[in-house]
Design a binder for these strands. Structure first.
Length: 874
RNA sequence: GGGGGCAUAGCUCAGUUGGUUAGAGCGCACGCUUCACAUGCGUGAGGUCACAGGUUCGAGUCCUGUUGUCCCCACCA
């Protein structure tokens, strides 16, 4: 038998084990009609991405679930993949081109895409390699990419179907425009923040009079596109002006004063400049009053020809110049500091310009309805369920989804325009001949689709949809989707309505939502703050298992968590503990014919640890089923460290070091059984170290990955015997506590006098009691008097303990100690007594509870009697 | 304005459908070279479960309100 290394050194085996798993095809999903499928779709990380703590937690949670299910015998598919991340990637490549002194326009679409693919080939796999370091057990042989052939076909099909039913349309509407990325964005891709700005007051002269009307704006440059000033119809101040014409300064335009309920008379001056082309509210006013919509910005955020002499100026430069000119004209009234919510590009942070533009949209109302219903009807369940409310909130208030992007890297919109007859043609296949006029002069729409359009199809596009592939039939719908709450509007929601629309089924039955990983001070980890911690560095230092465990312990589902290295250390210490406990068992088993558990004549301590193991198996299995990963991890750690290491291993030592070879073989049988099951319980959380240790177990076969997850066996519950044995533990703890309380040196063995009716239990465990309590002898007596007068005593469940400690005993201190104990017990009697005196409690509480309370009361009364006697004896 | 989270030990957090004497890790105190492990072992101190009501035999847990704090969405030009 090979021997375990003395030191737990994850670096020495983690990579090797991962390679072995891959080589042996342990992650590969198989269509097996005899098994129940279990499918998880990995949220595809961006090809531009680097592994961060958020990924680490997300991946760990998925891997835990997936490994658990695999061990339970499901046919598991954990589908990995990466996302082309249209905007992020294009941004990156454009940056690179800038460094090379060129632009994408200069290269042209074809060359640009060639470069983008080359970049993808070179760097796109980086994140995949990083995921492997974590131990992710996904089926890499099925690695998908949102722009691969299969996903692209699905995108075309999906687009075509929606277009065909009129659920995709093209129109001029106010959209969010990023002047730096030079593309439209969806509402979800705009992040708002409170920014400091100004409120500028300008006077607009009324035509044919000396009157002026004062308006206020935060964006003076947009006045170039004003086509009206609006006031509230009930506002008496302006009633006379409604219908009059204003001379729009800095232009030669005349604009009307209109009345519209939209205007809040109490805000600003009560008069609002209306710029339909650059403000969503103004757009509405413009439509109601038939106003012209004048767009004044170019795609890059400079003023266009409509801006007259300001043409070509950057929006902020134009703002400055306009304020100056208004001052020169005497039409500037005042400026106030004003903080307001400003939209920023999710990707580059630039200030968003709302503007009217011709874009493609998905009609959301008909799609949102079934997506809401599916969750209402529990076809898909959120864990924790409060996130269903957030999901509803989004879908109930959703607006049409702008899906076109002025980008090249992505799925090109499958619509062609006939240059001759002007027909608009959407097709699954490329169109080369116009079906309307037969022309071959066709131009495909220049734009790409929002990345999330393809991500929305992920749960089925990866399985071959729209083909009815065997994979699709077997693995779809998927079982659980694991993702952060910040992704609900981007992705979860869109997969839901897409899945329902295209496949008629919900894409997943459960959605497990987790929170954000924050830094030690509770701040979001971010590039700009520079407070991110690299998971790979943590893995290098502590091992992947420690990182994984630290990311799920003490974390409640859906809650944010703070990452601290201290937590990783705590997890590392635990794993180190397991490592050493395993070494202990294996070193002792060496050269011994370990007795199989079925042939062991179980002792009370054996039954106790097996009982605890079974209770843990039950709890862990239940917790994992409910996705309570934090609770599951807690239970395992608690059992392994406290019950197994601190108690059972110590309890086993008299047998291991004793001279009864049968007893030793049997004890090793129990140790081996418990160790093996502990490793299996722990495997989903700490796959590497458990696999490594498993390989040394004489009883184990193959990989722990494919071993069966421990099953609760009611025959091994041994509930009563385990409870009785807890008495022995209590006894040992009491003796230790007594010794500490009188400053008795731990090495000094004490003579125990016990008044007990559990002589057999004590006798069977005498060796353990002597060893763990630090005693030289156990003697049964009828009363404490036998122990002499310089004794310290304590009452525990199975016995009255008397320890003669001679000079160490301070009679006054001992009396004080006993009195304090008496006080506590009397408190308990009081509590239990009043509870039992309550007739309502007796009548309404469950019988078991009442019985328990009665038993407790009896126990405490008995204790009181004994303590009183001891006090008297002093 | 709408929605949601959080408030439990010095710190970070658990607490599963309401039910033993409210837990863990870290930190702290005291002691320990006990032959797997000092990344350890033993013993302990430390909590009016934010506040005020209510429901209940019974509330950290459910309801209402208050305060503080954080997040998401909408948004007044």
């Amino acid at each position: 038998m090979k021997e375990m290394q003395t030191k737990y050194d994850p670096r020495s085996f983690e990579d090797k084990i991962y390679e072995k798993w891959q080589k042996n095809g342990c992650f590969e999903a198989k269509i097996d009609p005899d098994k129940v499928p279990f499918t998880v779709m990995m949220p595809p990380p961006n090809i531009t991405g680097q592994l961060h703590m958020g990924h680490a937690m997300d991946e760990t949670m998925q891997d835990i679930v997936v490994r658990f299910k695999r061990m339970q015998g499901y046919s598991v598919l954990w589908q990995p993949g990466v996302d082309h991340a249209s905007l992020a990637t294009e941004h990156k490549i454009v940056e690179k081109l800038r460094e090379e002194g060129t632009t994408k326009e200069e290269l042209g679409r074809e060359e640009f895409l060639r470069r983008a693919w080359a970049w993808k080939e070179q760097y796109g796999g980086r994140i995949v390699e990083q995921l492997k370091k974590l131990g992710s057990s996904c089926d890499w042989s099925r690695l998908a990419f949102t722009m691969d052939e299969q996903c692209s076909r699905a995108v075309r099909e999906a687009f075509f179907r929606l277009y065909d039913k009129g659920l995709i349309y093209r129109g001029s509407r106010i959209i969010n425009w990023c002047p730096d990325c030079k593309t439209a964005l969806s509402d979800e891709e705009v992040a708002y923040s409170e920014d400091a700005g100004h409120f500028w007051y300008f006077a607009y002269p009324v035509e044919g009079s000396d009157e002026k009307i004062v308006i206020a704006t935060t964006r003076p440059e947009t006045m170039l596109g004003d086509t009206a000033v609006a006031v509230n119809p009930k506002d008496a101040r302006y009633a006379a002006l409604v219908g009059k014409t204003l001379l729009l300064p800095l232009t030669d335009r005349k604009i009307p004063v209109v009345a519209d309920d939209y205007v809040d008379p109490d805000f600003g001056t009560g008069a609002v400049k209306i710029t339909p082309a650059h403000d969503p509210n103004d757009f509405g006013v413009g439509q109601r009053h038939g106003l012209a919509s004048i767009r004044i910005l170019n795609d890059d955020g400079t003023i266009n020809a409509e801006g007259g002499k300001f043409e070509g100026l950057d929006r902020y430069e134009a703002r400055k110049r306009i304020v100056e000119e208004m001052k020169a004209l005497g039409l500037f009234v005042k400026a106030e500091s004003h903080t307001h919510n400003v939209g920023h590009c999710h990707r580059c942070g630039s200030t968003i310009e709302p503007l009217v533009s011709k874009q493609w949209f998905v009609r959301m109302a008909p799609l949102a309805k079934p997506a809401i219903d599916a969750v209402v009807k529990n076809k898909t369940k959120f864990t924790p369920d409060r996130f269903a409310k957030i999901y509803f909130n989004w879908l109930e208030n959703i607006r049409d989804w702008c899906i076109s992007r002025q980008l090249w890297w992505g799925h090109r919109i499958p619509v062609w325009y006939c240059d001759d007859c002007g027909a608009e043609l959407c097709s699954r296949e490329d169109v080369t001949v116009c079906p309307k006029c037969g022309s071959t002069h066709l131009t495909q729409d220049e734009d790409c689709l929002d990345t999330w359009f393809s991500s929305a199809l992920w749960p089925f596009s990866t399985l071959g949809w729209p083909e009815e592939t065997p994979e699709f039939k077997y693995f779809y719908p998927t079982d659980v989707l694991v993702t952060g709450y910040d992704i609900i509007p981007f992705w979860v929601m869109r997969m839901m309505f897409s899945g329902l629309r295209y496949t008629g089924k919900v894409p997943f039955r459960d959605v497990l939502i987790h929170g954000l990983v924050r830094d030690e001070q509770g701040r979001k980890m971010s590039k700009s703050l520079g407070n991110g911690i690299d998971p790979l560095e943590i893995i290098e230092k502590y091992g992947a298992d420690s990182l994984r465990l630290s990311l799920v312990t003490g974390v409640a589902p859906g809650n944010d968590t703070r990452f601290t290295e201290g937590k990783v250390e705590a997890s590392r210490n635990f794993i180190n503990k397991i490592w050493n406990a395993s070494r202990f068992v294996l070193l002792n088993a060496e050269g011994t014919d370990v007795c199989p558990l079925s042939q062991v004549k179980l002792q009370p301590a054996d039954r106790w640890i097996i009982s605890r193991l079974m209770a843990t198996v039950k709890e862990v299995t239940l917790a994992l089923k409910k996705y309570d990963l934090g609770i599951a991890a807690d239970k395992i750690v608690d059992f392994a460290w406290n019950d197994f290491c601190d108690w059972y291993i110590e309890l086993s030592k008299p047998a291991l070091y004793g001279d009864d070879p049968v007893r030793k073989r049997q004890t090793l049988g129990v140790l081996m059984f418990v160790l093996e099951n502990t490793l299996k319980l722990l495997h989903p959380f700490a796959p590497f170290v458990t696999e490594e240790i498993y390989s040394y177990l004489p009883t184990a076969e193959g990989s722990i990955m494919t071993a069966e997850f421990p099953r609760y066996n009611p025959k091994m519950a041994y509930r009563d015997e385990a409870k009785a044995f807890e008495g022995v533990i209590e006894l040992i703890k009491a003796v230790r506590a007594i010794k500490v309380s009188v400053n008795c040196p731990p090495a000094k063995k004490v003579h125990l006098f016990l008044v007990t009716d559990q002589k057999r239990l004590v006798t069977v465990n005498k060796g353990s009691i002597l060893r763990l309590a630090g005693a030289s002898e156990v003697e049964f007596v009828d009363s404490g008097l036998a122990a002499g007068d310089k004794t310290v005593s304590k009452v525990v469940g199975i016995a009255q303990i008397f320890i003669p400690l001679g000079e160490l005993v301070d009679l006054a201190a001992e009396r004080a100690r006993l009195e304090k104990e008496l006080e506590r017990v009397e408190g308990e009697i009081e509590r239990a007594g009043s509870k039992l005196a309550n007739q309502n409690f007796i009548a309404k509480a469950p019988k078991k509870l009442v019985d328990d309370e009665r038993a407790k009361l009896e126990k405490f009364i008995d204790m009181k009697k004994k303590i009183t006697a001891q006090l008297k004896a002093l």
